[in-house]
Amino acid sequence: MGEPVKSSDAAADNQAIVSQEIRDIEEGYKAARAAGQPAETQPRVDYPPYRSSILRHPTKSLHHTDPETIELFSPAFGHHDVHALESNLTIQHNGEPQGERMILRGKVLDGNGRPVAGQLVEIWQANAAGRYIHKRDQHPAPIDPNFTGVGRCITGPDGSYEFLTIKPGAYPWKNHLNAWRPAHIHFSLFGTEFTQRIVTQMYFPGDQLFPLDPIYQSIVDQDARDRLVARYNHDFTSPEWALGYEWDIVLTGSKRTWTENEAYGEQGDHE
């Protein structure tokens, strides 16, 4: 259309303008699907409704290559790296953090359904009021002196992870006027191969901000978006203590020929 490139972070447009762009892209995707194009399972790196992405995405397509030896292995982490208490985000200070206590549990699997055992999971999040500890966060919601919002754990032999934390709040950002992020928890994950490395965000079921959020919507396929949404699981809820949520993460398929030992997680925890 020959429009000038929008400057990132300008907060120049309102929600109606951004929502229209989101809908136009979604309609385009639906038409492509109807015409037989394959489903898209990852976010688009070129997604103008997220203004900061405009100058930060590659314009050339990713170059397909077969992984070399080093890329077929992953860095190893173990209990030497991460203390067991780091998975409890509610005990990092002297008192109880404010907010809704929650248990978050799930499994890290590879694309073949095998558990990713003995591997590092890192999370970070806003507090219950929607405020990050980060000094860049200027949202005038209260900082909770009893909540930092950073956790780590090492997956069990069955690929399982578990965190005890506080449900994060939604927060405003400057993508456009009146932009709010749905509540989310950032996840950083490693697989058994470097090619499986991902960073993503987990959301909560039924969030009314989903249709308005250009980061969530950068995944144009609804089935793919749904893979980022945790499920409330009453069996994980702890009576008179904390609500339970469940979220499994699937990494890409592995390219390496596996040994039985690796499949059961002996690798990754040599001290």
Binding site: T41, G111, H134, K135, D137, Q201, L228, V250, G253
Partner: peptide, 16 residues
Amino acid sequence: LVPTPGQTVGPFFGYA
């Protein structure tokens, strides 16, 4: 299994 989508690391990874 279909892989979980990635998302941006965002602005606030610096303390994590």
